[in-house]
Design a protein around this nucleic acid. Structure first.
Lengths: 93, 93
DNA sequence: GCTAATTTGTTCGTATGTATC
DNA sequence: CGATACATACGAACAAATTAG
């Protein structure tokens, strides 16, 4: 699966999102995964990396990853199951 | 507005929700406020207490209060505006 | 079938940024 | 301007479901 290797330049740059009205970090993750799904790189049924892996890949906290996954779940793009993981949902209609 | 004086017996009882499959704390807040809105105790345009106040009233952390408010917002029951507060939304249709 | 490891779920606390009053 | 209020973000601990061995 596509893994987006984006990393912040410095870990100390903790609130870059605010400085110049940049997108929040969790929203970047949401957009990133959404794009991958819409582009077909991530297909229905595909398993996303674990939260632990995503925190490393994106360089942000588990809190924000969970937040992003929750939003994606609300939007029906993914399904998350305790103990299993998160999976790309099958589109409706 | 209706303020529900529920408090956990002891602050140390941090994960009672799991012990016997109780509803998560944030979900209790969601249900509580939802009930008040549906019962008409909270009317459209009414301002909810601040997050700080809600943490005291419910005896849970700001994290969980924010989480609950976010869910209520997603469901269209309330509207939250930075610097202003949360307000009961006007029902659609 | 049991156990350990993995993975998500819930919860707390705290710090800093931004908008509004 | 100062106080108030929400937004974003980090880290950590423990619970519960699932999977791996």
């Amino acid at each position: 699966m596509r893994v987006l290797g984006w990393q912040p330049e410095r870990a100390d740059e903790r609130w870059p999102a605010m400085n110049h009205r940049r997108k929040p970090l969790y929203e970047q993750v949401v957009d990133d995964i959404t794009t991958s799904i819409q582009a077909g790189t991530l297909k229905p049924g595909d398993k996303l990396p674990s939260i632990a892996q995503l925190t490393v890949q994106y360089g942000i906290s588990n809190t924000m990853i969970k937040f992003a996954l929750r939003i994606l779940g609300e939007r029906g793009l993914i399904e998350t199951h305790q103990g299993k993981g998160s999976f790309v949902a099958s589109p409706p209609q």
